[in-house]
Design a protein around this nucleic acid. Sequence first.
DNA 1: AAGATCCGCAACCGCCTCCAC
DNA 2: TGTGGAGGCGGTTGCGGATCT
Length: 339
Amino acid sequence: MGHRCCNKQKVKRGLWSPEEDEKLVKYITSHGHGSWSSVPKFAGLKRCGKSCRLRWINYLRPELKRGSFSAEEEQIIIDVHRILGNRWAQIAKHLPGRTDNEVKNFWNSCIKKKLMAQGLDPKTHNLIPSHQRAANKIACNISQSNQQPFSIITLDSKMKDYSMEINPPILTLPSPYPSNSSTQPPLLQTTTSLPLPATTGYQNPSVIWNENTQNSQDSSIFPCLSSIENTLISSSSSSSVNPTGFGLLDENCFWRTNIIGEPFDAAKIFEVMQSQDQENQPNKICDTQIMDNTKGVHDNMDASFDTTSYDLEFVDSTILLPGSMCRDLSSMDDLAWNF
DNA sequence: AAGATCCGCAACCGCCTCCAC
DNA sequence: TGTGGAGGCGGTTGCGGATCT
């Protein structure tokens, strides 16, 4: 067994000894890794290249931050995970000095349990129905009073009736329109006056931001959104990126664009985009993030979440960390729709 | 004190994508 | 255009220390 790349020679497996570490560090600091497959040979190691790479990336790199995760890092992981799912490498990019492996382990060993203890499905971040929750109940020290739903969105007093609790059924659908397209949908605005059907136990806030609204950059518009969500929204609206890239859809899958023109039929957009996707147009964005906590509005929620095909470049470059976190903002330079 | 169980984490495995040829 | 090597990534395994009984 073993990697195909190391089938030819006998390679050592298992834990690395301090001597091996020393050899690897010495070699890479003086020569760089170049081709990983040649590293073990030149470094005098009986390991496969992949193993060397992993050891360096996950353990030996000087810029690695050791030690336990801070509460802030934990929140970032949760926030980004909700958007990206198990894209550990992408998540780790938002945590300087942390590796994907570290994030993944932390998630599996700690965060996952915390979410479950709070009655949230760690996969979807949705509220687990009480009967399932009872079955899944695990010991946890987190008191009820400390439990904060991760997605309370209460817009203002007018929207009182539409306020949402845990994991509202947010549908975020990247815009099918290129930013420079003349066929862009009408600019979006907050639509607090838009009446919403009151057919369900919760209502979506039909809030969408407007590129031209300066206030849209003000996170106070969404006072109850998490930092990541706020920054996602505000950076979307303030960047050169098509500000309509993310929006909230109502439960009928219509964009809330009540100002000009017809609302979009998200289902149709899906159809179009999925057919485009099937035609191997790799950069088309064609999926949703659906958060639906209490009813089966979107029965395929899990599937859609797991098989997200966001433009990850976009998502990645759109998410900013809270101001107190160091963050390499270079990715912001790459903001672009990949159409 | 000793065995059983739990748990965190490092490392491995296998799949995928990219790219050179 | 097909093929194979290399790198990257997510899922999984299993070791070893901590905790429980």
